[in-house]
Amino acid sequence: MNKRRIEFYVGLFVVLGLVCTIYIFVVLGEIDFIRDTRYPVYGFFTSVSGLKKGARVEMAGVEIGVVSNVMIDKERLLAKVELSINKNMTLSEDVIASVKTSGIIGQKYIDIAPGGSDVMLEPGQEIFNTESSLDIESLVRKFIFNTDKKSP
């Protein structure tokens, strides 16, 4: 085959391959080339069982950010969750963050209920009001042992 043609096809192949690679890294891997589209806030939970990095953060069912890190706070022995909230979304300091489940065995996500305060959360600050994930097992136990109280 002609040398120029070989070079043409190699070039085409490399370009197409690179387009696919970039697509995978940017769209699937969610690398942010523009770093500052989100800002971090933190929340402490007694249990975030099942919550994973990359999970959605919602307000009124609309996605406003992602969970960017889940770790343990060694002093308070609580789960420390880093939430990356979209820049255009400001949260007041009395919002309530709760771990919720979509569907009965579905994925965990963080729901944020809006607050009424005029003081807004600054990047890096902490959400004070948190609700941990629902423990179905203890819920069922509570339900069984409390039946006599609820019955009329």
């Binding site: 192949f13 490399v14 197409l16 391959g17 690179l18 696919c20 690679t21 697509y23 995978i24």
Partner: peptide
Amino acid sequence: VISLPLLTALFIV
């Protein structure tokens, strides 16, 4: 080393 990662990316997409 050049081709295989590119082909892999193509395969995935």
